[in-house]
Amino acid sequence: MQDNKILIVDDESFNLDLLEFSLVELTDIETIRAENGYEALQIVGERSIDLIILDISMPQMDGLQVLTHLKADEELKYIPVIVVTAQNEERYKALEIGAEDFLSKPIDVIELRLKVNNLLKLKKYNDLQRFFNERLEEEIAKKERQLTRFAKMQQELSLAREIQQSLLPKEFPHYPDLEVFGKCEQASEVGGDYFDIFETECGNYTVIVMADVSGHGFASALIAMQFRTLVHTELMNSSHSLSESVERINNIFSNDNRDSSMFITALFLRFDHRRRVMESVNAGHYDPIGHPTMKHISGIPLGIQAGMPYHALETSFGPESSILLYTDGIIEGENADGEMFGDRIYKIFEASNHLDAKSQVTAITQAFNEFIDEEQIDDVTLLILKGKGSEA
C-alpha cells in the first residue's frame, strides 16, 4: 500500500522534529519537511501530498499566505490543511481562508494523531468521489456527443439498447460446481435491467449481480454502465465482506447521483467455490426463487441515501440447489385481460426445475410470452443458478 505523504511546515527545526516524532506511530505515513513557506509551495508543486501541517508564524511568507495560495489553486485546494497556532485570531483567519482543522500550541500529540487520521480518511474518500465524478462526466460527455448525431428518438433508444446489451455477459462461465445461465429480453422502451457474472481476482469466488435501474431509455442505460464499473471496482477484490462492499457501492453511487432521482434495486451474490456457500445481499430487490432459506433483510435501493446498512446472508449451495433471479418486468407483465403474470413464475420454475439452466430459462420465457400475447412494456430478465457435482 502506498504511504500517505504528510508535509510538515515550520521554520523551527525543533518543531519539525517534534511533529515527525509524534507521527511515527501512525502506519503508512511518510513525512516530508519544509522550513519555510516558499519551500512548502515548491514541494506541493512537485510531489503528490495527502495532508499538510502548517505553522502560521513564519518569517518571509507566513502560514496564512501559504494557505491562501493553496486554496486559490484548482488542484492544490483539495489537499487538507491543519494549521498550528497559539493565537485565536490567526486560527479564525485560517479557517476562514479554508483550513480543514487546527492545532493549538503546545500541541497535544493524541489530538494531532486523531486529526491526521480523520483527515487522511476524508482525503481518500474525496479523491475517490472526484475520480468517479470525473469518470461519469467523461462518459456523459462522450455519450452526449454521440447523441447529437441522432435526429430521431428511435435512434436514441437504439443506442440505449446497445449500451444495455454491451453490459450483459457475452458468454456464461463453466464451473464444475455451478451452472449459470441468464437472458434479458428488451422491451420496446429500453429499461435498466442488468446482470453480470465474474470471478474475483483470487479465483475462489464468483460474483453474480442482478439489478434494475429506475426509469427507461438512455439515462437508465448510462446509469447501468456507471453501476457496472463501480461493481467491478468494488467486488473484483474479495478482501472486504460482501455487505461492506455493497455499503461502499451505495455510498459512492448516492453521492455521485445526489441531484438525480434515479435509484437501483440489486441482488448481490458471491459464491465460495471452496465451501460451496452462497453469500448474498439484497438492496431493495426481489429475493431469489427456489431456496427456502434465502430470505433477506432487504436494504433500501442503491442511490437513495448514503450511509445505509446492508446485511449479508450465507446459504449452503450444494448440487441440489437451484435459484431463479429476476426483475419486475416478468411478474408485472399483463395479458389482454389486465392480469399480471405474478405468482405463476413460482409454479413454472418448479415444473421446469429438472431442466438444465439454459433450457429452464427458455421454458419460463416461453410461458411468459404466451401469457402476455402482446408487446412487453418492460425488460424481462432472468438468471438461473444451479449447483453441480457431488457433495464435498
Rank of each mutant, 00 (worst) to 15 (best):
K5V: 15
I8G: 03
D11Q: 10
L16I: 03
F21P: 02
E35D: 12
N36Y: 01
G37K: 09
D50S: 05
L51E: 06
I53G: 00
I56G: 00
M58A: 04
M61N: 04
Q65R: 07
T68L: 11
H69D: 08
H69T: 13
A72D: 13
E89M: 13
A94M: 10
L95C: 09
D101S: 08
F102I: 08
I107K: 00
I110S: 04
L112S: 00
N117E: 07
L119W: 05
L120V: 11
N126E: 15
R149M: 15
Q155I: 12
R161K: 15
E162D: 14
K170E: 13
P173R: 11
Y175C: 15
E179W: 07
G182M: 14
Q186I: 12
N204A: 08
Y205K: 09
T206L: 02
V207T: 11
V207Y: 00
A211V: 10
V213Q: 05
I223H: 07
F227Y: 01
T233W: 00
S238Q: 13
S245Y: 03
V246N: 05
F253P: 08
S254N: 05
R258Q: 08
D259P: 01
M262Q: 07
F268N: 08
F271E: 10
V277Y: 06
M278K: 09
M294Q: 09
H296N: 04
I297H: 02
M308Y: 01
L313H: 05
T315P: 02
F317T: 12
I323L: 04
E334V: 10
D337M: 10
G342T: 03
G342M: 01
Y346N: 05
A363H: 03
A363E: 06
E370Q: 10
I372Q: 05
E375L: 04
Q376I: 13
I377F: 04
L383I: 12
K388I: 08
G389L: 06
G389I: 05
G389Q: 05
